[in-house]
Design a protein around this nucleic acid. Structure first.
Length: 734
DNA sequence: GACCTGCTGCGGGGTG
């Protein structure tokens, strides 16, 4: 391996020496060959703080240090904060090589942009949205400035796979190669990513037409040691004023105070609302005990200065600090490692749990995960979900899948992304001024990322875009922007492909505390919790979109916006396995490890006992109280499909945590109906979507014709084939 | 019963 190091530019070697590094990491050594060769795409996959950035930049800078004119490295990041980080980190190395580095995003000073505009050179650090703007507004300049680009590198690539923004990025890269006439001789794409699930599928996510081979470099180190404990809490029913029992959240805050004070921890509380509420309770505990506060909230609605202060405090590691946070501290930002990670309420997915756990484990020590789960004290008339203790069992299933099976959810790459296709049709048309239909289809769907879109889809979409004046077809057959299309493309809000709810600024006096996405009314005199403190609303200005507040004591949390996503088949099947065996423990060699405290064990026994008394091992459809329950123990696409079918059949049905409740009926009519559905065959996803009234989920969905909207929505929400298979498996013998 | 990300060009006013 020493020879690999020798292949780096002497000035790069000198920089490595100055860092005081004893040696390069394994992935850094292994990346040198493929990056220097520059004849393949490269996937570099390693855990947080694994040295991925240097693995790319050391050889890439070696290869391009002496190129004088034009950008040589195009670096793309999903976060502005990450661009600023990388700018600081690259300064030293690039000074050594006399290379220019330019950060370029919405907050970058014009002076830096102007300098690069006059004399583009070296490394450009940019967001997909800013790159989109360059292609649309400055295509001629871009063609010159990027003419000799040697590498395109995408940071946090996992954050792009299978989502709208990733489709846009891939489409932009295809358009760039086309603009530079590099189709026959593509620019190598390098993806830097946290460890990914199914590595074999990633190259196609990086280059959908497979027009260049891909080298994969991963580090093999996993968690060295792992300590996990699940703690259960009982939320008392009918609390009275003089009750000595405490609500579950209060018990959890007591526990958090004990576990966290004096150390460095991350508490993931899943919603901004719960994040606020827990952080403010913990801050109160510190106040009551007259000790300095060390508990702070961190989420996307909080003003940047509050977030950055907390990030800096965590990174400096001089004072004990606990961040109560949402996924804002899950990836990317460099905050170092913490003593432990604490998950309050069930995680949303195994992959997110895995990312979070990766934040723990200092200096090669054990990673520590606590999971605090509250279930309600049982009362008469309770629903199946409570009786089964589903939240607890879902958490146990996720821990087992992560640790025993080393499994986590793969990205969903089967979507059409019609909304982003509308955007890319407009963007490409704007970039070229005019374009032929066949060229557009070849670019976006044959070489670009919209491979699932057929020529038939494409024609129907273009016809609709013509009818709604997004596009106009010239006599020559060329497409140009229509009146509505011009209006959209010329507004700065066009460049991003994801939808944002309307936000209000929260202001105390003259100080902006942060922003709040609003979909429920906030009324004057209402009390809210924000930024870890309680406030009283004094004024709501709907024109300026401002909420004025003054400080108070106590108060109920604000309502935050958001939408749900799906639990995977594999998670629900693992839950079924745990219920059926009555055993959640993890096998280590021949021994079985228990990782629950006594309250959690009791709660689990309650759920498992109910499961067995109701014969749910063999009976997926049971009656309880005035309702019948259908329990497929499959992912939310199948659950959604069954609910849609039952509603069409005239039943009243709804689903909670994967369990379908059909009210006011018994097992027999439900079975008869589902057997009938099975014999006729489950309708296609697109037909099920037709019965859903509100299907506008993504930003440009409102510009789709009804048939494409149904097809796209059906694909993301339903699963007909799997539902048919489940019906056949459980109903055939009955 | 979620969560997160991003954005141009131009004109007017102040400062050195």
């Amino acid at each position: 391996m020493i020879e690999e190091y020798q292949r780096l530019d002497p000035r790069v070697q000198k920089w490595v020496f100055q860092q005081g590094w004893a040696d390069l990491r394994e992935i850094q050594k292994r990346a040198i060959g493929p990056i220097l060769a520059g004849d393949t795409d490269v996937l570099i996959s390693a855990s947080t703080a694994g040295g991925k950035t240097e693995a790319f930049f050391l050889p890439a800078c070696t290869a391009s240090a002496d190129q004088q004119e034009g950008f040589s490295i195009l670096y793309i990041s999903p976060l502005k904060a990450l661009i600023n980080d990388q700018y600081r980190r690259l300064e030293g190395l690039c000074k050594m090589l006399d290379m220019q580095v330019t950060p370029w995003h919405g907050d970058t000073p014009q002076s830096l942009k102007k300098r690069a505009k006059r004399a583009p050179s070296g490394i450009l650090l940019i967001t997909p949205e800013s790159l989109e703007a360059l292609l649309i507004l400055q295509a001629g300049w871009a063609r010159e400035a990027f003419a000799s680009v040697r590498y395109v590198v995408v940071d946090e690539f996992h954050a792009f796979i299978g989502v709208e923004r990733g489709q846009q990025l891939l489409s932009i890269l295809t358009r760039l190669e086309h603009l530079l006439e590099r189709q026959a001789n593509p620019i190598p794409r390098v993806a830097l990513s946290a460890t990914l699930g199914e590595l074999d599928t990633v190259p196609l996510s990086l280059r959908p037409d497979g027009n260049m081979p891909c080298s994969t470099i991963t580090n093999t180190e996993g968690f060295s040691t792992l300590k996990v404990q699940v703690k259960g809490y009982l939320d008392p029913a009918n609390l009275k004023a003089d009750d000595r029992r405490k609500p579950a959240e209060h018990q959890i805050c007591d526990e958090l105070y004990r576990l966290c004070r004096g150390g460095s921890h991350l508490v993931f509380a899943n919603s901004r609302r719960r994040t606020e509420s827990i952080a403010s309770q913990l801050a109160n505990f510190c106040k009551e005990r007259v000790v300095p506060n060390e508990f702070f909230p961190h989420h996307g609605s909080l003003a940047k200065e509050f977030r950055e202060d907390l990030e800096a405090r965590l990174q400096k590691d001089l004072l004990p600090t606990t961040a109560v946070c949402t996924m804002t501290l899950e990836l990317g930002i460099d905050i170092g490692k913490v003593n432990s990670v604490i998950q309050v309420t069930a995680p949303h997915s195994v992959s997110s749990l895995r990312q979070r756990m990766g934040r723990s484990g200092r200096r090669g020590g054990a990673a520590v995960l606590w999971m605090l789960i509250a279930e309600r004290e049982l009362c008469s008339g309770f629903k199946l979900v409570d009786l089964l203790r589903v939240q607890l069992v879902q958490s146990l299933a996720m821990i087992r899948l992560l640790i025993s099976n080393r499994w986590f959810e793969p990205a969903d790459t089967s979507q059409f992304h019609f909304s982003t296709l509308v955007h890319q049709i407009l963007a490409t048309t704007a970039q070229w001024g005019g374009i032929r239909v066949d060229q557009l289809y070849a670019l976006l769907c044959r070489t670009g990322p919209f491979q699932a879109v057929t020529t038939d889809h494409f024609k129907r979409l273009l016809a609709h875009m013509g009818r709604t004046t997004l596009l106009t077809q010239m006599g020559s057959g060329e497409l140009v922007l229509g009146i509505e299309g011009e209006r959209m493309v010329n507004h700065y809000s066009f460049y991003a492909v994801f939808r944002t709810p309307e936000e209000f600024r929260i202001i105390n006096g003259t100080k902006v505390l942060g922003t709040l996405p609003l979909d429920t009314p906030i009324i004057p005199k209402m009390h809210i919790v924000f930024g870890g403190r309680s406030w009283k609303v004094t004024d709501v200005d709907t024109d300026k979109r401002v909420i004025q507040v003054i400080a108070t004591k106590g108060g109920s949390p604000p309502a935050f916006a958001g939408e749900g996503l799906g639990v995977h088949d594999v998670v629900r099947q693992e839950m079924f396995r745990i219920y059926a065996s009555g055993d959640y423990r993890i096998a280590v060699g021949t021994a079985k490890v228990d990782f629950l405290d006594s309250t959690a064990q009791d709660l689990f026994q309650e759920g498992a006992t109910f499961f067995h008394h109701s014969h749910m091992v063999s009976q997926p459809i049971i009656q309880h109280g005035a309702a019948t329950y259908v329990c497929p123990w499959l992912g939310d696409k199948t659950v959604n499909t069954l609910v849609a079918l039952l509603l069409q059949g005239g039943f009243e049905a709804g689903a909670f945590a994967g369990i379908i409740e059909v009210s006011g009926t018994s097992v027999e009519p439900v079975c008869t109906f589902l057997q009938d559905v099975m014999r006729r065959g489950v309708p296609a996803e697109v037909e099920l979507a037709d019965a859903v009234p509100e299907k506008h989920v993504e930003k440009f969905d409102e510009f789709l014709p009804a048939d494409l909207l149904n097809e796209g929505f059906g694909q993301r929400a339903f699963e007909s084939h799997g539902t048919q298979a489940w019906l056949e498996a459980v109903l055939t013998d009955q």
